[in-house]
Structure formats: C-alpha cells, structure tokens
Amino acid sequence: MAPVGPRSGDAIFANVERVNAELFTLTYGATVRQLLTDLEEVEEVNKQLDQMGYNIGIRLIDEFLAKSNVTRCVDFRETAEVIAKVGFKMFLGVTATVSNWDADGTCCSIILEDNPLVDFVELPDTCQGLYYCNILSGVIRGALEMVSMKTEVTWIRDVLRGDDAYELQVKLLKQVPEEYPYKDDE
C-alpha cells in the first residue's frame, strides 16, 4: 500500500512557522485598502486580489507538498478534502468543510465557518461589490493549476455581504496531461 497522506493539518500546523494572527489580518486589510485607493474601481480590486492570490498559489503548492507529505490524490473529491482539511489548516489555521457536490464530482463548495482574514472588517456602502477575500480563490486556482487541474473558483456566500458563511465554489474545468515539452527537431 502506498503511504496515505495526512487527513488533517493539525500536526503540520503545529510545526510550521506562524505569525501573529492580528498582524496578519491587519496586513491583509492594509493591502486591500491600498488597492482600493490605487485602483479606485472595486471590480479592478477583485481582479487584482485574484491575480495576487494566483501568484501566491503557484508557489504555495510546493511548500504544501513539501511539508504535508500528501501523495497524489486519486480524484477531485480527495483533492477538495485535502484543500479543506489540510491546506486551510496549514496556512490559515482553520478547517473548512466540503459539500454540495454535483453528480460528476467536478464541482463542489468549500465552506469556511471561521475566516481569519475578515476580523475587524465591515464593508462600507461604497465597496458593496468587493469580494474582500478574493485572494483565497486565486490561491486555490493557482495551486491547483500547478498540479495539472484547471479550475474556476467563485464566491457563493460571503458573511461580509450578509450571508451566514463563506462559501467558495470550486469547479474543475479540465485536467492537463503531461506532455513531452521538446519538439523532435529542436
């Protein structure tokens, strides 16, 4: 039997370097605030946060794989579980639940009860279109892309907009096979 990766991120979370949660929350808040000032349009800020998340995700995946000892997931269901149980715990210190699977197992929701990014945050009227945590969707998209999965990640529910939880919909678009990268005549 192949060794099975961890089913929870507690042990890893205990071993990784951590930063003060308030410092982290406030730093993220300051970043969003600065983006709002610089870009002026809420839509642009959403895009920028997503792009920043993506750039984080394509690096973060290697740290995740190196430290978690997770082996390859057999299917997308397992991938989603690993993100929710191990990934979120390892990097944010919270766990999420996975639900709302569609019939083919290619689309699901990751639900966060507790979200350390949003402590102290209230959306003012001028920022109603803002997805404050849009960086998270970018991170997931970027990280999955590096393990050959093209995904689309969208926010379904957001406490800052009056919902009762944070819900991210992760939709698997396609899996990219590994191909020989050189041409024969090169």
Partner: peptide, 15 residues
C-alpha cells in the same frame, strides 16, 4: 494496474 494507455501517451503528472 489495469488502466494504462499506450506507450508514449501523455499521462497526468504523477499518474
């Protein structure tokens, strides 16, 4: 493993 493609057929990374 019963499922395997032909030799040289692209695999998913790590498959």
């Amino acid at each position: 493993n019963a499922e395997k493609g032909n030799l040289g057929v692209p695999q998913l990374s790590g498959q």
